[in-house]
Simulated scan of single mutants.
Amino acid sequence: MHLLGYSIATDYPNLPPRHKIIINTINPHSYCEAKKDKYFFQALKSSDVLLPDGVGIVWAAKFLKGKRIQKIAGADIHQRLLEIANANQQKIFYLGAAQNTLNLIAARIKKEYPNIKVASFSPPYKPAFSQEDSEKMISSVNNFQPDILFVGMTAPKQEKWVHAHKDSLDVNVITSIGAVFDFYAGTVKRSHPIWIKLGLEWLPRLLQEPKRLWRRNFISTPLFIKSVLHAKLKN
């Protein structure tokens, strides 16, 4: 479904693919950021699958297209891919986050999905990676030869890095899921399912991390609504 200049998926992708597939997510904040960042826009635009990770995108689809679509968060696609990997005895790789977080993820994977082989790499914490950094990251992934690569380095850095290096990564499925690393590791608590069902997953997170998340809720959300209303008037 084409919405606000993007081709947005209305359901989970059919997997496993016959070729490399890049899965990203979009929400009102990332939409607004992509309007200011051309390379981020290109990264989202070139996604093989772009999932609606936000009630704002779900609302826009209904308001502009009259279509009801399902919100599919990064945590949802993460779980779906883990189930597929476990059923097919596949290998997965986590790229991003601190080593302690990665260790907690590996321990949980071993317990919940025993058929999965897992490896990881914690890249340096910096605003931008050097060529040497990226080469180490790519080598770590390719040496393990995973079926699925999860990237968690916050948006838009993670999507832009994947877009720049996807041709060098020897893996079938690549998806950027940001905060899901911390959710799954248990180092950050995801909103209760009741809040998620009500379409208010953002509220508890905002209360937990107001300094980091206030901009996306009080600046990006109104700007997104303005864009949607403008698109409606154009039609």
Rank of each mutant, 00 (worst) to 15 (best):
I138W: 01
V228E: 02
I219P: 04
E135T: 11
I219Y: 10
I177C: 03
S220E: 06
L149W: 11
S140K: 11
D170E: 12
S134V: 14
R212T: 13
R212C: 10
A185F: 10
V171L: 05
H163F: 15
A164V: 04
D182R: 01
L206E: 05
K157D: 03
F150K: 09
T221P: 03
L169M: 13
W161G: 07
L198V: 03
I196C: 02
S176C: 11
R205M: 05
E201Q: 04
R212H: 10
A164D: 11
P156A: 09
A231H: 09
A185N: 08
D133N: 13
H230Y: 06
M137K: 08
A164S: 11
A231N: 08
I219L: 13
E201H: 00
S168N: 01
F183R: 02
A179H: 11
F150T: 09
P127R: 05
Y184P: 07
N142G: 01
P222D: 02
H230V: 08
K189H: 10
W195D: 05
F150A: 02
S191A: 14
G178A: 14
V151P: 08
Q131G: 13
Q158M: 05
F150V: 10
K136W: 12
F218P: 05
I196T: 13
I194W: 14
N142P: 12
T175C: 13
A128E: 15
D182L: 14
Q208K: 14
V180K: 05
P146A: 03
L198T: 02
K157C: 00
S168R: 15
H230A: 13
K226C: 02
D133W: 12
N142F: 07
E201N: 00
A231F: 05
W161E: 12
K189W: 08
V228Q: 00
F129E: 06
L229I: 06
V180L: 03
G152W: 13
H165P: 04
T187Q: 07
I225E: 00
V173T: 11
G152R: 12
